[in-house]
């Protein structure tokens, strides 16, 4: 992705952090960003690492009997 795109995303991020701080200074401003990042990594870990070892099968799994 081009640099412009990243800058655009960062601007949004910064904007939301600022807005959140302005709305309620007591709250951690990037809370949802961190939660989303960790959650996304957790999901990827569960689905791509744990599940791959346990429940992924070849596509013709049910056709073979």
């Amino acid at each position: 992705m081009k640099l412009v795109g990243w800058i655009f995303l960062f601007l949004i991020f910064a904007g939301t952090v600022a807005a959140q701080y302005w709305d309620d200074p007591a709250k951690f401003p990037a809370y949802y960003f961190v939660y989303g990042l960790l959650g996304c990594l957790l999901l990827l870990f569960v689905t791509k690492v744990v599940a791959k070892k346990s429940i992924m099968r070849k596509e013709d799994y049910y056709d073979r009997s």
């Binding site: 995303l9 949004i12 991020f13 939301t16 807005a19 959140q20 709305d23 990037a30 809370y31 949802y32 960003f33 961190v34 939660y35 989303g36 990042l37 959650g39 996304c40 990594l41 990827l44």
Partner: peptide, 13 residues
């Protein structure tokens, strides 16, 4: 804010 930050983080990851 919530609706923007969550997808943003998801996209980055």
């Amino acid at each position: 804010v919530e609706a923007l930050q969550l997808p943003l983080a998801t996209f980055v990851a």
